Simulated assay, not measured.
Amino acid sequence: MSIGNSPQEDRPSIGRVIQQARIAAGLTVDEVSTATRVRIPIVQAIEQDDFSRCGGDVYARGHLRTLARAVGLDPEPLIERFDAERGGRPAPTAAAPLFEAERIRPERRRPNWTAAMVAAIVAIVGFVGFTLFHDGGKRDDAARAGETAGAEPAPTTSAPARTADPKPEPSDSAIAALPKDKVTIKITARDGQSWISAKDANGRLLEDGLLRQGQSRTFTDEKRIDLVLGNAGAVQLYVNGKEIKQVGDKGAVERLSYTPGDPQAG
């Protein structure tokens, strides 16, 4: 009499789930390592369900959460399954009351007598200077009044009011402000995060990493910009001020190239 495998035994392991999602997204281990800053040996070990290289369960949870997001998975079910297979996550310990009291107790400051003395000296010098200046000003006014007594006041002419310079009118379109002899690309992670790589015409790396939802990057070059988008359906792409309506599908990897001319996929 034979016993078949249970549904739990047929379910793929945590590492296998991440590996399958990475392959489905069209990403290599090197690309995932570059996007997440998790070293290649650790990525390979996690895909083989070997968490000994992570340095502990706390770091293993962090690596699982980062890798899952990079390949388009929800990390929470994987974290719950990881904790369940290891007997559950330990409960956090509360901080000692004495430590909290010491931490929030304000520090008593000593009076700064040096600053007080300096302020007093400055006030005295200022008062003496003001008194001398005020008395001297009265004597000068009296002398000028005696010299000019009986003189007819000179006619005064009012200068014409100066007209304020008109402000420049704003441009009707943001596209008109873009340089015509360069290619300008703006990428926004609108519907989710995406791994992106951007290079200029000389092959110099401009960006290589994970663009989280809501973040944007702008690149400019005189000849060409080459792009690799790890989750093309999640990004909004503008080339030379014009929106590219259909960049790619969700989870798909797209390799694109653009020049200063009209937007065209490379």
Rank of each mutant, 00 (worst) to 15 (best):
S158W: 09
Q264N: 11
R108E: 13
A70S: 14
I42N: 05
I14Y: 00
V228D: 03
A143L: 06
F219P: 14
A123K: 13
N5A: 11
R37P: 04
V239F: 05
R86D: 03
A164S: 02
R224N: 12
L229M: 11
D50P: 05
V247L: 07
R255G: 01
Q246C: 10
T188K: 11
I46V: 14
R39I: 09
H134R: 09
K182I: 02
E243R: 15
P41W: 05
V29K: 10
A177H: 08
L237G: 15
H63N: 03
S158E: 10
G230S: 09
S6D: 14
I187C: 08
V128D: 03
D262W: 00
I79N: 02
L73D: 00
V253T: 12
V17K: 12
P77Q: 04
R61Y: 02
F219K: 10
R86G: 01
D135N: 11
D165R: 13
G72Y: 07
D140T: 12
R103H: 13
H134D: 09
S173Y: 05
R110E: 15
A24D: 15
S52W: 00
E254F: 09
A176R: 12
P75H: 06
P168W: 00
F219Y: 10
V228F: 03
S13E: 04
I42V: 15
L98V: 10
P106H: 02
P97D: 04
P153Q: 06
G261V: 03
I196W: 12
P77V: 08
A116Q: 14
P90L: 00
A84G: 14
Q193H: 12
V247P: 05
G251C: 14
A60C: 06
P160E: 02
G261Q: 08
D10F: 02
V17T: 12
G15F: 13
G248W: 13
A201Y: 07
K167E: 11
F219E: 05
S52F: 01
S171E: 11
G15A: 00
I18C: 13
D200E: 13
V58S: 10
R11G: 01
G248N: 14
T218L: 02
T218D: 00
R61H: 06
I225V: 15
G56L: 09
I3H: 15
S257L: 04
G146A: 13
G55W: 03
A94S: 13
K199R: 15
G55H: 07
T156G: 08
